[in-house]
């Protein structure tokens, strides 16, 4: 009996409860209605653009600004002029090749060949599922770098010979490297001969992997803030050069022996890094899938200055890569006009 009384009471409570819920719901809806006005119409780049139709072309963006602005410029041109939708996929360098292989990525516009000799061999030369789309234009170079104040204080450290002196090398010592100087490598996925170079040149340095580019960038900031010497692998172009003064350390000039060592992986590499002529690559089926887009991508080229200008909009002025690309495309119709053939 007791229990059934309780149930009755519960049923009575419902009505109270429902009313309250309705009230809450009404208030919520009113709020939502008020918020709805905020909506903007979707932005379109310009009135002259073609309508987007057909299957999308997928471009890979690797995690650095140059890669992002290339793809966004290509996207802006292809979407507006050809009416082909372009999808951007952000992915790391090695996965890019897997995507190019199975056509989940149609093209990538900036490959640093020095790190991808094996991928080039596997996918382009052997399997033929990926094709070489020619050079992007800019060249890049990996090297050893120190903050500028290091060279100001010790000019001999502008060249690798300076690091033969244990006392000078020890300036770069940390808790991790102990007696030796520390050589800092950023992301281990980047191409690296540094460990071989240190061993083969007999330098009193210890190779330490920071693990990621972000960790390396932080180390640069701290080194400059603390006036603490730092020796690392770094490269050009990179947006960090805009805000940090870094000086490249001269390494022995590249020799045929070093080229052979790089190819064979026998561990005898002891030279500077080669210059990277940045290249483009595409899935072998892209031409059949969308010849017009394929031709634009094949013709796509930027000079070092042009790329730096767009990257500067992003890294210096804080624009998104998309906005930077659209701005540049609007200002330079003659450049991309040539790609349309």
């Amino acid at each position: 009996m007791l229990v059934s009384r309780k149930l009755n009471k519960g049923e009575y409570m419902i009505f109270n409860g429902k009313k309250r819920h309705l009230a809450v719901a009404a208030v919520m809806l009113a709020t939502l209605a008020a918020c709805g006005d905020d909506e903007k119409a979707a932005t379109t780049a310009s009135g002259d653009c073609k309508e987007l139709t057909g299957d999308a072309v997928t471009l890979a963006v690797n995690p650095w600004t140059g890669s992002a602005v290339n793809a966004q410029v290509a996207k802006a041109v292809i979407e507006c002029q050809l009416g082909t939708p372009v999808e951007i996929i952000e992915i790391d360098e090695y996965a890019t090749w897997v995507g190019l292989d199975d056509a989940s990525i149609d093209a990538v516009l900036e490959v640093w060949p020095s790190g991808h000799a094996a991928d080039y061999q596997t996918y382009i030369t052997e399997k033929g599922t990926v094709i070489d789309l020619g050079l992007l234009g800019p060249s890049a170079k990996i090297g050893w770098y120190v903050p500028k104040f290091v060279v100001d204080e010790h000019p001999e450290l502008a060249s690798w010979e300076g690091f033969q002196d244990p006392a000078l090398a020890a300036l770069f010592g940390t808790a991790e490297s102990g007696e030796l100087g520390q050589f800092t490598m950023g992301d281990p996925s980047y191409v690296t001969f540094d460990e071989q170079i240190i061993a083969n040149l007999g330098l009193p340095l210890k190779y330490v992997v920071a693990g990621s580019e972000a960790a390396l960038l932080t180390a640069i900031d701290q080194a400059i803030a603390d006036n603490q010497p730092l020796l690392m692998q770094f490269w050009k172009p990179h947006w960090k050069h805009l805000e940090a003064e870094l000086v490249e350390v001269a390494l022995p000039a590249i020799t045929p022996a070093c080229e052979a060592a790089a190819a064979s992986g026998d561990g005898t590499y002891a030279c500077d890094y080669p210059v990277d002529e940045l290249m483009k690559a595409a899935n072998a089926g892209l031409e059949a899938k969308n010849a017009a887009a394929f031709n634009v991508l094949k013709a796509f080229q930027l000079t070092t200055d042009q790329q730096s200008e767009i990257a500067g909009y992003v890294d210096r002025d804080g624009l998104t890569a998309q906005a930077a690309a659209e701005k540049w495309v609007a200002d330079n119709p003659d450049v991309w006009g040539a790609w349309l053939g």
Partner: peptide
């Protein structure tokens, strides 16, 4: 994942399965 901040050792070794799978 501490390999990404320089802890090295097994973390770094296994990270290389992702970072340089072809080698």
């Amino acid at each position: 994942i501490a390999a990404l901040v320089g802890a090295g050792a097994l973390g770094l070794v296994s990270y290389e399965a992702t970072s340089k799978p072809n080698l």
